[in-house]
Amino acid sequence: MGFTRISGKMIEAQVVPGQPLYSQRGAMLAYRGEVSFTPNLTGGQGGVMSALGRRARGEAAPLMTVEGRGSVYFGHGGHHVHVVDLAGSLLHVEADRLLAFEGSLRQGTVFLGSQGGVMGMVRGQATGQGLFTTTLEGHGSVAVLAHGGVLELPVTPRRAVHVDPQAYVAHRGDLRNRLSTALGWRDMVGRGSGEAFQLELSGQGTVYVQASEEKL
């Protein structure tokens, strides 16, 4: 099924009975057919865990269920939309960058602290987007939002990528993340601030970076 790219800022999704979609609330631009939009209290399929995560984030990314028969156009705030097709792999994405995803994907919430220890927690603070990151896994399409275009940078075991946490959008694959600081960086931005760190991604996968240091 997937999402059809209409422009850099708009996608079209086909909705058929029995295959719901999830999207950010308020992201529907137009639709035709018999389609219903139901705001989710728990946010997608994740159940208690994701509800918890959402609460911890202060309802940062409320979702709605889209079902019925028809087609729906999605976009948000004039931001760029980037579609990632997952074929069995795992995507981590900051919750408020999630525009829409297919119901065939399993949604979860990861407490990044469990992966990166204390540093993971700092990372959450650095990005200002909470300690929880949404994960999507399985087969299906995900549409993410970015300020400006999205740059896909491949990560290989021999080639780690360092990302400004403000510009980080998402990553997929088997990647480890940790906070690092390049030589001189901390003197430049000031030691106390969260911006003193960069996100180092290593392993095998792809990291998605936006052309801006501005959060959405």
């Binding site: 209409i6 422009s7 800022k9 708009m10 529907m28 631009l29 137009a30 035709r32 004039g78």
Partner: peptide, 14 residues
Amino acid sequence: NGEVHFVEPPIRVD
């Protein structure tokens, strides 16, 4: 904001 996309009725638009 973004390219204009042309559609034909019937349609409901935000």
